[in-house]
Design a protein around this nucleic acid. Structure first.
Lengths: 203, 203
DNA sequence: GCAAGAAGTGAATGGCGATTCACAAAAAAA
DNA sequence: TTTTTTTGTGAATCGCCATTCACTTCTTGC
């Protein structure tokens, strides 16, 4: 009577889904969103264009998921640092450093995720991601102010500013066909800026 | 023999061009780039779609000019402040305040110019604009460091960070359908962040 | 093995809006 | 006024891809 998917079938479907996501991510990393048409994703995942629609309702939905899961991953890394040991200043430094270094590692991907023009939906997901990054810094700021490591200040605004600051400072070296030199100095410069901005003592 | 445009004709053509630019700007201010199709711009300027192409080679070119001239205007305002009197700290404060207030004044326009997804070319113009804003702050930073108002620091990075910081802090309240309250606090928060970041004494 | 249902195919469709173009109206030269 | 050149019109084209769909191939239940 009713059709029931075997375990193996389930596996294969799940695997396909993952392959689609992976292919999409890889194509974005390679040449940005433009480079990643449904046809390209499909063939790169070893499926037909039509098949994609068995797994995702639309192109936007697919890329929103690609973006969101990448962001989840980054956030998890940052939260790990936030929850770690050391004073707040050190952890803030570590967060900014980590984010910046990872972005410079895969510049095209980071560019796409931070700044490349994309559809409405993707863009909304991006905004949401930025807000989530903001929350991470917000928690650090709250702790820092509480522990008197930082002076009293507007937490929400400060968090947004931090995200904006390192993001912007990264965009230029990250953008397609930009020169990328002095990475260490760049990262250190960004960190120093952020630490001064929150009023951390020296460092 | 050769056709020569009369003075009146020249005038009319120049006027048409201006009207097109103005219509485009108005439509963007009203509903973002999406809202501003060639057809819409044309009818709003009192011309036919085809006529636009006698004045601009492409839609992108038109919007690049709209964007660029808006940026020119903003930059001029900031440079006025930079060249003004008062210590560097005060002028930096005035620049950030001015930009933020003007952005909050015409939120949709600012959003489109700062963050709305658009064609490649427009996006490139936007990046260029950001760099130019950076230069303004760069000159302030250089002066501030020279005059010992600010400690030694990475000028280029700092300038980029400032632009990113206020930009990001503005995007959320500026974005379509965002709530916009506490404007004065927002601006003051951003200013405070930036001043601490460059190491300005109190304020 | 065989019917019924599910997954996969890829060429055709569809929508959208920029761009073009054959033609019309207006302006300058003759 | 007639001719030539420029400017303006707006419907038709065109390009681009996401999305669909009639059909094939594979899975499952019997």
């Amino acid at each position: 009577m009713s059709y029931k998917r075997s375990f193996l079938m389930e596996e294969r479907l799940a695997d396909n889904r993952q392959r689609i996501l992976k292919a999409a991510r890889a194509l974005v990393a390679e040449g940005g969103f433009n480079h990643a048409s449904i046809a390209a994703v499909a063939s790169s995942a070893g499926l037909s264009a039509g098949a994609i629609y068995r797994y995702f309702p639309s192109k936007s939905a697919l890329f929103v998921e690609v973006l969101t899961s990448a962001i989840d991953h980054e956030i998890a890394i940052l939260q790990q640092i936030v929850k770690g040991e050391g004073d707040v200043t050190a952890r803030l430094r570590a967060c900014v450093e980590s984010f910046a270094n990872r972005a410079l590692e895969g510049p095209y991907l980071a560019y796409a995720f931070i700044a490349e023009p994309a559809e409405q939906e993707v863009d909304e997901a991006r905004l949401l991601g930025r807000i989530r990054f903001g929350e991470v810094f917000k928690s650090l700021l709250i702790e820092g102010v509480e522990k008197r490591e930082f002076p009293a200040q507007s937490i929400d605004i400060g968090a947004a500013c931090i995200v904006g600051a390192f993001t912007e400072a990264l965009i230029r070296p990250i953008a397609p066909r930009a020169k990328r030199d002095g990475r260490a100095e760049l990262v250190e410069g960004i960190v120093a800026f952020c630490l001064r901005a929150v009023g951390a003592k020296i460092s």
